[in-house]
Design a protein around this nucleic acid. Structure first.
Lengths: 332, 332
DNA sequence: CTGAAAGCGCTTACAG
DNA sequence: CTGAAAGCGCTTACAG
């Protein structure tokens, strides 16, 4: 492996000058610079990242903590984020939390020793205040923290999130406006702040339309196919009557549609269903799923911009909120 | 941040002894060891990874290169692999190739400077022999290479793959045995070795059953919903007659099912469809998708074992092949 | 069994 | 504008 010393020898300068040239520092005479550049090009020299990181006190690496990479929400975010930060020279270390607070805890214990440039928190599971000291400690060490699914801005972590409340309210209002009352709500509420926001939107739409809130039509379940399937099956078997389902996620919606089909209900003729998140397969199920949009590319751009700003010592906006829109397909 | 010197001071020994204790090296007296361990525990000491990596000449990091993390095949593999190698202390740096050979090229140019422990290649896109010199170079530097989707064992890269030929043959034989001829094949063939293997299985099943190969029923398309939808729509609009579709992937199958539904064909009554890969949503579409299994957990275990073996200087098996089975659901 | 010393490959005050 | 030197925090021959 060629080192900075090899380049220095080839160019007839010191390693300090090589470093200055390669790091774009001012104050190197043109001919010295040219000789260094030529030598670097000729040898295909790449600075040893481990040495750079040790010396600079931090690496070019971002840790990305996702709820469950197997869910489209997270894999799509990961894809765009990786592409986006690669443009400013950052690598992504992926930690799959698998919805386990233990894994978050063990990551945070390790994180300070990793020399990370930053950490992106991307999980819908509530990150409780018990983690605040460790998060603050990381920030104190100069890491840039970012939360990309749930809001943590009020606890000092800049957040880039999607709007949940108004989006759900719009979807449920749409269902009510098309004569689909009563509306069942199936989604995570209790252990997810964004889930709670969505549920709040559901209730607001009901209230605006003068519809009563029926507890038996509210199912607080995990974000999974199975949960959607089981909740709706149970409701049908209990003889509950409803004209539509607002799901807290697309996978819940798919489970709901399957449950309805298996009990002989037609979607959307008998029961309308709206998902949440516009997962990549939602346009290809039959009926195609009506759902609420997501804008990972925009979020990834905002994240890149936040890291660039932090790097340059500029302020990072405490909160960026991305609106969603209703994507009307066939299921509602 | 506490360093090895702090621990040494606290324990009343030298930094060399601290290092020996922490790395499990033999030959440290019990009382010295205990004092070091106590000091480390008390301070919550974690060795600086950047310094360790520089000194040892390599990090604890594996690069994982995937075709497209947004596809369930890759996200599921990523999930299991990350969990699996975490158990032996390895982190995963994720590179999303997005099916671009350019990205692979630029990664390989950078890789030697990264101090990686290993590289996992996980893409269905053919990695041509033009990359062999760089791959060999990485191996010569002591990196452990592993290919987890396509076979590269004949080119010196240990591979952990799923069986493709017999699996497809079994699925297509099943279609023929249930009176579903002629069978259309929709999947990637030309730029993917594993796709070609699947297609070979299709042809073998046809030959065994004495069925003719009809070129117009073979569609060489990308692994995408759109491709499946368009290929089947085109076939129907051209008036082609077929009793079933063997898809080269689950997303192609979902596109095919949608195309059939949109043209008024019932699945499986009019046309049977078999997917490939048992993506996490396949049990929840209606009709539920009959498909061929995948065993990411087994593959991830094999990968962990390979890295552990390489670490210990033991031989890594050149090829591990994992069989698939037909998962019968509703669509065929 | 243990410590002093060297060194991994960089970057950056410091001095000129 | 440039070089000699120090040092980031480890690990490991080397010597005892």
């Amino acid at each position: 492996m060629t080192t900075v010393l090899d380049i220095a020898r080839l160019a007839g300068v010191s390693s300090a000058t090589v470093s200055r040239v390669l790091n774009g520092n001012a104050g190197v005479k043109a001919d010295a610079r040219d000789r260094v550049l030529a030598a670097a090009l000729e040898t295909g020299y790449r600075p040893n990242r481990m040495a750079q990181s040790l010396r600079r006190g931090r690496s070019n690496t971002l840790a990305l903590l996702v709820g469950d990479i197997e869910q489209n929400l997270y894999s799509s975010l990961t894809k765009h984020l990786q592409a986006s930060v690669a443009e400013i020279g950052l690598d992504v270390l992926l930690y799959n939390l698998d919805h386990s607070p233990e894994r978050l805890k063990s990551f945070l214990a390790l994180a300070p020793a990793l020399g990370l440039r930053g950490v992106v928190l991307a999980t819908s599971d509530r990150i409780g205040p018990e983690f605040d000291p460790q998060l603050a400690d990381l920030q104190a060490r100069g890491l840039t923290l970012l939360s990309m699914i749930q809001r943590l801005d009020l606890r000092g972590v800049p957040s880039i999130v999607h709007e949940e409340f108004a989006a759900t309210r719009e979807a449920v209002s749409y269902l009510l406006g098309t004569g689909r009352a009563p509306v069942m709500y199936v989604g995570r509420i209790s252990t997810s702040d964004l889930g709670a926001e969505r549920y709040r939107g559901y209730r607001a739409a009901l209230a605006e339309a003068g519809e009563p809130l029926r507890r038996e039509l509210v199912q607080d379940v995990r974000f999974s196919y199975e949960a959607g399937y089981e909740a709706v099956t149970r409701a049908l078997d209990a003889g509950l009557c409803f004209g539509s389902v607002q799901a807290g996620s697309d996978v819940i919606a798919l489970g709901a549609v399957a449950a309805l089909a298996d009990r002989g209900r037609r979607v959307p003729e008998d029961v309308a269903v709206i998902g949440f998140g516009n997962a990549n397969w939602t346009a290809f199920t039959r009926p195609a799923l009506t759902t609420l949009s997501v804008h990972h590319e925009a979020a990834a751009m905002a994240a890149r911009s936040a890291f660039a700003a932090a790097e340059a010592g500029r302020d990072v906006p405490p909160l960026v909120t991305i609106a969603r829109s209703l994507i009307r397909r066939r299921s509602a």
